[in-house]
């Protein structure tokens, strides 16, 4: 479903963000991508959303060749993705309902269908009773749930989460991870980018570790080195 083949991205001359990067993620997988700051995690996310084009190599997602996709086809490709950001990126001048409905409005869904779907998805994330609230009136965890609701309302094939628990306390982190697991159980491929190794260690999921733009390990659960690091810390 997601295929990176010998992908290179250069930010400056001779300075690679990712180098000769190859990766394959199957449909329905739950994958963590971990690594230090500057390892190349965000570059992978930007390549997947096609905010960034590779200098060389091939990226295929579904039937789309992201290195050659036309700009006119890009919106339709992006509709198959759901994206969750570390800083939520909600619209602060709109209510919870409007923030979630926004994702449906821009793809031209009718008002009647939007209302039904928004209520359903807010039920799923446990914010049904807060649909009139504005982002500033919610906790960080609740704001992230709104962002997840917005990301999944269009029923994406892939959910990309960039440090989704980065700004959250432990309780909220667990709630968000439970939610992402639930979304994955419904059939959506979930790719979570994080540097929170404690979180990753609690789940027995595929972990791709990156450093300096290369894959160091690709394991189920943390690799030996990281497990040892977690145990020491």
């Amino acid at each position: 479903m997601i295929l990176f083949k010998n992908v290179n991205v250069k930010y400056e001359k001779d300075k690679y963000a990712i180098k000769d990067f190859s990766l394959h993620i199957n449909e329905g997988e739950f994958v963590f991508i971990v690594g230090k700051t500057g390892a190349g995690k965000s570059t992978i996310l930007k390549l997947l959303t096609r905010e960034l084009k590779p200098n060389s190599g091939t990226i295929r997602v579904f039937k789309h060749n992201l290195d050659s996709i036309k700009n006119s086809k890009l919106p339709y490709y992006r509709r198959k993705l759901g994206i969750v950001f570390q800083n939520f990126r909600l619209l602060n001048d709109r209510s919870v309902f409007d923030n979630v409905a926004f994702a449906q409005e821009i793809i031209g869904v009718s008002s009647f269908k939007i209302k039904k779907r928004v209520i359903k998805v807010l039920n799923l994330v446990g914010l049904r009773n807060k649909y009139k609230k504005f982002p500033r009136e919610l906790s960080g965890g609740e704001q992230q749930k709104v962002a997840i609701a917005r990301a999944i309302i269009n029923k994406p094939d892939i959910l990309l989460a960039d440090e989704p628990t980065g700004n959250l306390d432990e309780v909220s982190t667990n709630e968000i991870i439970d939610l992402l697991l639930h979304v994955n159980e419904m059939g959506t491929t979930v790719v979570v980018i994080t540097h929170d190794l404690h979180l990753v260690s609690r789940l027995n999921k595929r972990v791709i570790r990156i450093n300096d733009g290369n894959i160091i390990s690709d394991t189920i659960g943390l690799d030996e080195e990281l497990t040892e690091y977690i145990n020491v810390n």
Binding site: T49, P75, R78, G82, R89, L91, I106, I107, R150, N154
Partner: peptide, 11 residues
Amino acid sequence: NECEIMKLIGA
């Protein structure tokens, strides 16, 4: 911010 979000969710 709104335009960027719109762009990323397929507008």
